[in-house]
Design a protein around this nucleic acid. Structure first.
Lengths: 200, 200
DNA sequence: CCTACCGATCGGTAGG
DNA sequence: CCTACCGATCGGTAGG
């Protein structure tokens, strides 16, 4: 692992634990074992670490959903796959996911000298919108085809994202559930609900 | 509204929007229309505002659930009521809920001079644990009575909290859904799931 | 990768 | 409620 990668990894863990604003470059440097000024030989700015984190996980999620969404499957199967994939990615990148979903608001709003194309924040929001839209479309299709109940697809997808994106708050990689199993249980809960139906 | 209340209200909105760490006392003072030093005639510290926010919403949620949990109702009805109540409280205190659920980690860890009883953070965590425990027990009861499917009650309640506590990210008080309606739709989704069952 | 340092800003206090 | 100010800390740069 290069020093640069080490810095990113350490910073991600600290951003997750204490928050982006509450983590100083000196904190990161200390954890890495160098002086704060030396960090700048490997990275351009604190915000660069945040953006790298947010972008990489967003890229991965989007690439995965893009692949799932065009498969020739009924909506319930497709939704299950999308949920399982999403949760697998989150569970395998807990630090990055926690940071991206929690701290994205500290991304640069407007392009500065370092970011003339303007706004990591806006870029991230655009990616998020695209991803959510595709997820919601799967649900909408299921409703239209009569496979799903006539729920509000927007509301349902918001509830679904909420549940999925909170996982980093409690998922234990050392626990008994693998990411895939967790994803499957989650998909079951969201698809079937908790109430047992009578058989008639 | 007293100046003190005004400070708390303004600060809550800013903590929610920018985060606790990224909001300075000078920011708050400016929004209120006074100098930063003058804030300290009404409050003791920045952390006091955070603690007041976290405690008040936790108190309200706990009081409500304490009332619901002992009613003589089947688990599915009880769970629905608990969900609706929870969401009503969150939806009616969007700023406070967002701050409490997002920024609680900046509560004082150990008791300082101002807080000799030791640790708002710990107090908050204890309240959260108590609340979650009672919620989970409703689900567990439903499973044991055969009213619910044999889901993992811990996993289900975590998913449920995740979904409920993300609401402040998108609920629009000016929108068409009242808090009660939102709560009812949410309860439906979690209880029934999205998939339509065949009739045989 | 370090020493030395910059201007800016922080939460909070003294004293009126 | 204000002016004036404290020591601490911030992200980042210069120069080697």
């Amino acid at each position: 692992m290069t020093r640069k990668e080490q810095i990113h990894q350490v910073a991600r863990g600290m951003f997750r634990e204490r928050g982006y604003m509450a983590t100083s470059m000196r904190d990161i440097a200390k954890a890495v074992g160098i002086e704060a000024a030396s960090l700048y030989n490997h990275i351009k700015s604190k915000e660069e670490i945040l953006w790298n984190t947010c972008e990489s996980i967003a890229d991965e999620l989007i690439a995965n959903l893009d692949e799932v969404k065009d498969r020739d499957l009924p909506a319930d199967k497709k939704l299950t796959q999308a949920i399982v994939s999403h949760i697998e990615i989150v569970a395998q990148n807990l630090d990055a996911a926690a940071v991206a979903f929690h701290e994205y608001r500290f991304l640069d709003e407007k392009g500065g000298k370092r970011d003339p194309n303007g706004g990591h924040y806006k870029k991230f929001m655009a990616m998020r919108k695209y991803y959510r839209h595709n997820f919601q479309k799967i649900i909408q299709t299921g409703v239209e085809e009569g496979l799903f109940q006539p729920v509000d697809s927007k509301l349902f997808s918001l509830a679904l994202f909420s549940a999925m994106n909170w996982i980093y708050n409690w998922y234990d990689p050392e626990g008994i559930l693998t990411p895939k199993q967790l994803g499957q249980q989650f998909a079951f809960i969201m698809l079937e609900g908790v109430r047992k139906r009578s058989n008639k």
